[in-house]
Structure formats: C-alpha cells, structure tokens
C-alpha cells in the first residue's frame, strides 16, 4: 500500500509489494536481493526476513520445475483431498512444502482455492483441475513434458 507522501507512513507500506516483485522476478526471495532491499528501504534485514516469513506466498528456495498444489479446504477434505496428498507424497517421497532432490517436483498444500464445488481440486503449474482422484492426478503428472517417475 503506497502512502502518497511523507505526511503519514514511511514508505514501509511498500515492503510487501517489493517482496512480491522480487519473487516474481526470481521465483523466490534470494538472500542477496533481501539484503539489497533492506539497505534500500532502511529496514533491518531481520525485519525484512520477519515480514517475508510471515506470509505463505513467499519462498526462500528456487522453484522446482513443476509444482503441484493440493487443495485441502473443507470440501476437498471431506471429498478425499487427503488421499491425493498421501498418494503423491508416497510417489515422490516429499512432504508438503518440500521439493524432490533433483528439484523437478514440488508439493504444496493450500488451505482453499475456492473451487469447493469441484472438490477435490489440485493446481498443477498454475492450471486448476477439478474432481480429481489419486489416479487422475497420477495421470496429470505422467502427462507432463518430462515425466519424473521414480524420483
């Protein structure tokens, strides 16, 4: 939130959008970019880091080649979202928030994407898919350009 002029606020309101901009450019928040931001905005590095870590959108590792978000909102929960999560977790041996060692596949959970009527829902590389099952998610992953079976 920009704060027009010096009458109120300190430019501080731009911190989160500045972080978002860095993430958009790099896909994550590299440490040197955070240091530079801290210098430029006159906000201590620990505070910049404190703000960034509060929000779930900010990542501190380079993005994987493919990212699968599994929705675990209420509707997805009662309609089997957990089963999908368990199956993907077993297949790639990663927990939510983790990436495979070859950095090809990342698994994320999300609280609700708001497509509850089509539960369970997953998002693969930004594309939403509804009414999923562990099998259909498997197939989605298999259909990626470079299948990463048996990572």
């Amino acid at each position: 939130m920009t704060d027009n002029n010096g009458d109120y606020g300190t430019g501080r309101g731009r911190l989160i959008s500045a972080l978002a901009k860095i993430q958009k450019k790099h896909g994550y928040l590299p440490e040197d970019a955070l240091s530079e931001l801290s210098r430029k905005m006159g906000i201590s590095k620990s505070e910049v880091y404190g703000v960034a870590t509060f929000y779930s959108q900010f990542k501190f590792d380079p993005p994987a080649k493919h990212t699968l978000h599994i929705c675990l909102g209420t509707a997805c929960h009662v309609r089997g979202g957990m089963k999908i999560l368990e199956s993907v977790r077993k297949r790639f041996k990663v927990n939510p928030g983790e990436t495979t060692e070859d950095r090809k596949f990342a698994l994320e959970r999300v609280a609700c994407l708001g497509c509850c009527a089509l539960a369970p829902v997953v998002v693969l590389d930004g594309e939403i898919h509804g009414k999923m099952t562990p099998e259909s998610v498997d197939k989605l992953i298999d259909d990626l350009d470079a299948p990463e079976r048996g990572v």
Partner: peptide, 10 residues
C-alpha cells in the same frame, strides 16, 4: 476470503 470451504467473494 480465507475460510476453507468458502468462495462467495471469489
């Protein structure tokens, strides 16, 4: 709108 299971505002 953050409640899981709610998508009215969306």
């Amino acid at each position: 709108e953050g409640d899981p299971g709610a998508f009215m505002n969306r």
